[in-house]
Design a protein around this nucleic acid. Structure first.
Lengths: 186, 186
DNA sequence: AGAGTGGCTTAGCGGCCGCTAAGGTTTCTC
DNA sequence: GAGAAACCTTAGCGGCCGCTAAGCCACTCT
């Protein structure tokens, strides 16, 4: 991937996060990049394609990272998954925002790709959680993992605490929730 | 508020949740309501105004509900706040989605109103949390509350478990997280 | 020097969609 | 039954914005 492309992706991500995909024009992106609107079409097929690439990139990053953590194994995989995800949420708030808010503006095809990748990522977490708590039924585990993602992905709405402190809070909350024991094993 | 208005608001909310504000036309809303596009303008000033009313309504509902819980007092206020919020998240997933995703499409004025109401709601929670854990500093408490909201508001992404089971999971996770004790009282 | 290439420019088309205009029909009141 | 009011209709304007067309400039390589 060319340097210019990633540069444009970053610029666009920040604009999308701030104003929403639909409220950002290709001219806006161009302006922010120091070029003019249609210059974008020398790097991407269009505005939607750019968004798709961005969203797929995020999902792949998370899935790859999660797999790397899982493959190492050990008895603290969940801790390391939480840590990995929390770092992403803290360091790339703009991407979190776009992923959650603007997926609906991607093409059907890209949406499908993203959802498939996300589903794999969720499954990865679910497997680890069930590995730790074998009594958990699978659907409860899925809902739990989604809830934990919601928790960690709250960074765009939190004020700006020092980075390390934010990480500490998020990992503590997430692990406390993950380790809470169900009343009745459903 | 006229019956028709609330009806239209509900219909629009579901459409917005499914496809996103920007991907829903006034004709779509009309069609779904059994009338035709511009009929909308006899009830609302426009598409943006409709959205604004919807979002402000949500924020007011939450703030009012939270206040009612808090004013009762007792030693289980946090439990009841969690329960109240979780019920909303489970029963009105469409509204949750719209609130998070389409706020950016409301007018500046409406966005400001919504954010003010939301800030008050957060403060209400923060006060209760600090009441229970006086050692918590205020900014940590705010980040915690935002994280809990993220956790509970994950319902749109969770599959559909039985309602009561979903409520059980969310309240358990939320309370476990809320009651986890910070390593070092910052 | 000349050719190719990568990256940019401006001008402008075309489609979509929010919204308005102008008027019809039903319902209610007296 | 007349008048008003509530609610709806269709036709169509106007603006915005993604995208294309056509061509300029700078740099590299032979």
């Amino acid at each position: 991937m060319s340097k210019r492309r990633t540069e444009l992706l970053t610029i666009a991500a920040n604009l999308f996060a701030e104003r929403g995909f639909a409220n950002v024009t290709v001219n806006d992106i161009g302006d922010a990049a120091g070029v003019s609107g249609p210059a974008l079409y020398h790097h991407f097929e269009g505005k939607e394609a750019l968004l798709g690439e961005m969203l797929i990139g995020i999902s792949e990053y998370l899935l790859d990272g999660g797999r790397k953590v899982a493959v190492i194994g050990g008895d603290e995989v969940l801790e390391r998954l939480v840590d990995f995800h929390a770092r992403f949420a803290v360091d790339d708030r703009a991407l979190i925002t776009v992923q959650f808010r603007d997926l609906v503006h991607a093409t059907e095809r890209d949406q499908h790709t993203v959802r498939t990748l996300q589903a794999r990522y969720v499954t990865l977490w679910v497997d680890e959680l069930i590995g730790e708590q074998p009594d958990l039924d699978r659907r409860t585990a899925r809902a739990t993992v989604q809830a934990i993602f919601g928790l960690i992905n709250s960074t765009p709405y939190s004020g700006s605490l020092p980075r390390q402190q934010m990480l500490d809070i998020l990992t503590r909350l997430a692990l406390a929730a993950l380790r809470s024991v169900p009343d009745s094993p459903a």
